[in-house]
Design a protein around this nucleic acid. Structure first.
Length: 668
DNA sequence: ATAGGGTTAG
């Protein structure tokens, strides 16, 4: 072991925690150190002792020289490296000049003395692994490169950083960063944006920002990587700030797309759509060739899907067709999902059919299976799955969550159980907590609560909140308070902030007249400061969305709506409607309770739709939460009495009300 | 050769 191989504290550039350099007493030979990654255990030869070898006065000198050269190449400076310094790369030190200290066997290796592949060849191999292999294989090659004493250059780092961003393990990325600093590549724009991206993927935007702030030459990639970083952490405002700081000429397609995608993913659908339009405006006014590409379209479509904005979605579909962007499978898949989530299964299916057979990958099939599942069409979901298997596309974990949940909603209990068992056995997909949630849901919905509980007890992975949540929700339907208490107890620990669980159990107590316990839960809810997220529903009429909030009456036509709703119970009671007051949380008198129910946002939206559209028109309502049981019942009667088809999309699925029945067969 | 997209769960 070299005494000088860990001069960390003397290195003015270090921003690293010493702990990340592993056991300095270990020899610097390639040792295998297990690294815990999120899903599987991987074994990588430890990078740390290897990197430590570069941490020497010689290497440090090379770094400083490199830094100087990059900042101000001396007049008449003739680079020794084979590749002349160019403007574009900023003049990097040649790998050949970085001398690496001898390893334990006394081999002193520099490029000139090392026989074997030159770094150029290593870079090519690493690029190949980056493209076609796994992040692990990239790192393996990188380790080999270091092990024979070759110094990576500014071409090597972007791939290696991308690989460590994909893993993503903070200490791994950080130690590679440290090597970047030692070798003097921190100023490179490619390396810089890769570093930003790596820290973002490791979940540390703060460090990403630090790298960004420390760069003197920033190109669009650095800005874009930072925008993406803020969006991924849900910090929409900071992302907006960064985007706003960029000059208009600096923004490229990626900047716009990162913003639009970020809005979509953070549930700000209206801003995603707004920015997309703004983008189109700049295209029309400017002539700099920055225009939406297929990724931009694929990023804005989820916003339409989320908002249930069918008309907007159609408009963007037309735009994509006009621009020739609809031939890309990414756009086609996004279209399937958009149409499905906007309630038009027919359009979803025709988009799916138009995907050419070679392009139908697992994601495409998943989109179609999910489309059927969300519409409660279990049989069709199963058929689509079988088609998928026949066309030899291997299903993944997502395929099975969709398929199983489709079976569950479609009441296909035995079929679902069979698929669950075949997951591991025939398709080599390991069941995870969410798959257990689906089969627990499957059993529990069918009223087989004890069996469902048995499944949970025999699980070989830790049951997550969704597993217990499925059980609790079914307990309500089947009025089993004993098992509900077991499930709720777990849920209160697993997700104390979720108000739905408290509400559900409280209502169940109230239903059987155990008021004290119901009250206790409600005060617990208050005590923990759990906020009920406000119910909101919206309906698109003539391409314009009208939003309604539970209990709020700021809509200009609220008077009319309330008059309609006041009259409604009388009309539909004749058809057999009895309000179910157990869906009200508050402690109020019976009459008041009924009144509270009447302010539910989905009722307001449906009423507005009936009032504002011609007789017989289909109503499409979207709700941010799960539909309330009383509303569900009431809308069934409305569909019968007013002879309307009413499609309500709640947070889980679609409910198509027609002639007094719902497509979910009351499995909601 | 860097950055961006599409599928999921009561």
């Amino acid at each position: 072991m070299h005494a000088n191989s860990l001069t960390l504290s003397q290195n003015p550039m270090h921003i690293f925690d010493q702990n990340y350099i592993q056991d300095p007493t270990q020899d610097s030979q390639c040792k295998t150190t297990p690294i815990q990654s999120q899903h599987n255990r991987i074994r990588l030869p430890s990078l740390f002792p290897l990197i430590a070898r570069y941490r020497t006065p010689i290497a440090g000198l090379a770094r400083r020289q490199a830094s100087m050269a990059r900042l101000s190449p001396p007049p008449g400076h003739v680079p020794i490296s084979p590749a002349p310094h160019t403007e574009d790369t900023g003049g990097h030190p040649s790998a050949a000049k970085v001398r690496v200290p001898p390893d334990d066997l006394g081999h002193r290796s520099t490029l000139s003395e090392t026989r074997g592949p030159p770094p150029l060849l290593f870079n090519a191999i690493i690029r190949g692994h980056s493209r076609f292999g796994s992040p692990h294989s990239v790192l393996q090659m990188f380790v080999q490169m270091l092990a024979i004493g070759l110094a990576p250059d500014h071409y090597t780092f972007p791939f290696v950083l991308k690989a460590s961003a994909d893993i993503p393990l903070f200490p791994l990325g950080q130690s590679i960063h440290s090597l970047c600093l030692i070798l003097g590549f921190e100023g490179d724009r490619y390396v810089g944006s890769s570093l930003i991206n790596m820290y973002v993927k490791c979940g540390d935007v703060g460090r990403a920002r630090k790298v960004f702030d420390g760069m003197f030459l920033r190109d669009a990639s650095c800005w874009n990587a930072l925008i993406d970083g803020y969006m991924k952490t849900g910090d929409v405002r900071s992302a907006e700030e960064v985007f706003g700081t960029m000059r208009e000429t600096e923004r490229n397609v990626v900047s716009w797309t990162a913003m639009i995608a970020g809005y979509s993913q953070n549930g700000v659908a209206d801003r995603a759509l707004g920015l997309f339009d703004e983008f189109l405006m700049t295209v029309r006014s400017g002539c700099d060739g920055v225009r939406p590409n297929w990724m931009t379209v694929a990023s804005v479509l989820p916003a339409c899907a989320q908002a249930g904005a069918l008309e907007q979605g159609r408009r963007i579909h037309r735009y994509a067709t006009d621009m020739g962007l609809d031939r890309h499978v990414g756009v086609q898949i996004a279209l399937v999902t958009m149409y499905a989530k906007c309630g038009s299964l027919r359009d979803a299916h025709s988009c799916f059919d138009r995907i050419c057979i070679d392009d139908k990958d697992v994601v495409a099939w998943n989109a179609m299976i999910t489309a059927y599942t969300s519409h409660g069409m279990g049989t069709e979901a199963v058929e689509t799955f079988e088609d998928m298997i026949r066309s030899r596309v291997a299903p993944d974990a997502i395929t099975f969550t969709s398929l199983l949940s489709g079976c569950s909603h479609g009441g296909l209990v035995d079929r679902g159980m069979k698929y669950f068992e075949s997951m591991k056995a025939n398709h080599n997909v390991e069941p995870r907590s969410e798959h257990y949630a689906c089969v627990v849901d499957l059993m529990a919905r069918a009223g087989r609560l004890d069996e469902a509980l048995g499944i949970i007890e025999r699980m070989d992975v830790e049951p997550g909140a969704s597993v217990w949540g499925a059980l609790l929700s079914a307990c309500r339907t089947h009025r089993n308070l004993d098992i509900a208490e077991i499930a709720a107890k777990r849920l209160f620990m697993l997700e104390p902030e979720n108000c739905g669980n408290y509400a559900l159990l409280s209502n169940m107590y109230a239903n059987v007249g155990r008021w004290e316990e119901a009250k206790r839960l409600r005060s617990l809810l208050k005590e923990r400061g759990v906020k009920k997220s406000p119910g909101c529903s919206w309906i698109e009429i003539n391409g314009k969305a009208h939003a309604f909030f539970c209990g709020k009456n700021d809509h200009p036509e609220m008077r009319e709506i309330y008059m309609f709703l006041e009259d409604l119970p009388k009309r539909i009671r004749a058809a057999g409607y009895v309000p179910d007051i157990s869906f009200v949380l508050h402690d109020v008198s019976e009459e008041e309770k009924e009144c509270n129910l009447m302010t539910h946002s989905e009722k307001l939206a449906v009423a507005f739709g009936i009032l504002r559209t011609r007789a017989g028109a289909v109503l499409r309502v979207t709700k941010n939460l799960r539909i309330c049981g009383d509303c569900h019942m009431m809308i069934k009667f409305v569909s019968k009495v007013y002879e309307r088809e009413i499609i309500v999309r709640d947070v889980n699925r679609f409910h198509c009300f027609k002639a007094g029945v719902c497509s979910c067969r009351d499995y909601w």
